[in-house]
């Protein structure tokens, strides 16, 4: 019903997705203290897209990402990254956690944090060399943070901290990125920088899965959407799936700003008219 991207059953026989699909999830269920947070999630995300994961608070957006990355245990279900389990495909995946998830008083500089993105490549027992620091500095340059490389991270603004996190993800040099609310609480300049970065990653053929809160910007920033509220309500190209009816299903009664967002979206010119209606 939701287009070609929502057909996991086709590939489910081997409990592993096709090798050209960046992220394939089947029957994923996650529970905290026996209360399900995600229920029977099936997903198959296309390569080279900017994908928004959208849903109300507590809908399980972060949980989805964390369970895919094996950070929290799954009650059931299978995940594959480019056709194979995450544990052997780590090198293809980059992760930007929520900014609040770390202690910004930690005694490291912005450059140190970015260098952490290189740790997997550097390997065990080897120190961070000058070459690695230069590589980290180049990533900082890409997000406009090179002048702050030596700053201790608590002396950066929220937006700057977010950019450091993004630079670290760039240093991971992944094909599939998971970003947990990179736009939360950032200034306008950082928002612009992040969008530019996402577009650049896309132009390099990379796939970004971004937990996003601001419904108004979904149609402009993302070309693919996953609407989630414990279950996947809809997933597919933005113009097909990001409809009022689907959003109403996702958010239930909690729709206030929504109508306005959709109204604006309806006025805006669309890249290409949707071939299929999302929820009709």
């Amino acid at each position: 019903m939701f287009g070609a991207f929502f057909q996991p059953s086709a590939a489910s026989a081997a409990m592993a997705g096709p090798a050209d699909i960046p992220l394939w999830v089947e029957d994923l269920t996650v529970a905290y203290h026996r209360k399900p947070v995600l229920w029977d999630v099936d997903l198959s995300l296309p390569e080279g897209k900017l994908i928004a994961v959208v849903g109300p608070n507590g809908a399980g957006k972060s949980t989805l990402i964390k369970s895919i990355l094996n950070l929290i245990p799954r009650a059931s279900g299978a995940v594959s990254i480019y056709g194979r389990p995450y544990a052997i495909q780590r090198h293809l995946v980059g992760y930007v956690p929520q900014r609040e998830s770390v202690d910004w008083d930690f005694p490291v500089s912005a450059l140190d944090v970015v260098a952490m993105g290189l740790y997997r490549k550097i390997g065990w027992f080897r120190p961070v060399s000058r070459r690695h620091r230069q590589a980290a500095l180049r990533e900082l340059e890409k997000v406009g943070m090179a002048p702050y490389a030596r700053r201790q991270i608590s002396q950066l603004s929220g937006g700057q901290q977010q950019r450091v996190f993004l630079a670290r993800a760039l240093a991971q040099d992944a094909r599939l990125y998971f970003m947990d609310e990179p736009f939360a609480g950032v200034d306008a300049a950082t928002e612009k920088a992040i969008v530019a970065l996402l577009k650049e990653l896309q132009s390099e053929g990379k796939t970004c899965v971004v937990v996003h809160h601001d419904l108004q910007t979904v149609p402009t920033y993302f070309d693919h959407v996953v609407l989630i509220n414990m279950r996947v309500v809809a997933a597919g190209p933005t113009q097909d799936v990001f409809t009022e009816e689907n959003l109403r299903k996702t958010y239930g009664g909690k729709l206030t700003l929504l109508s306005q967002a959709l109204h604006e979206y309806a006025q805006a010119p669309r890249p290409s008219p949707g071939k299929k209606g999302g929820g009709e």
Partner: peptide
């Protein structure tokens, strides 16, 4: 350093 600062990222990179 990385497990003290950002255990989640550390875990994702193995």
């Amino acid at each position: 350093k990385i497990t003290s600062f950002d255990p989640a990222l550390a875990t994702t990179i193995g």
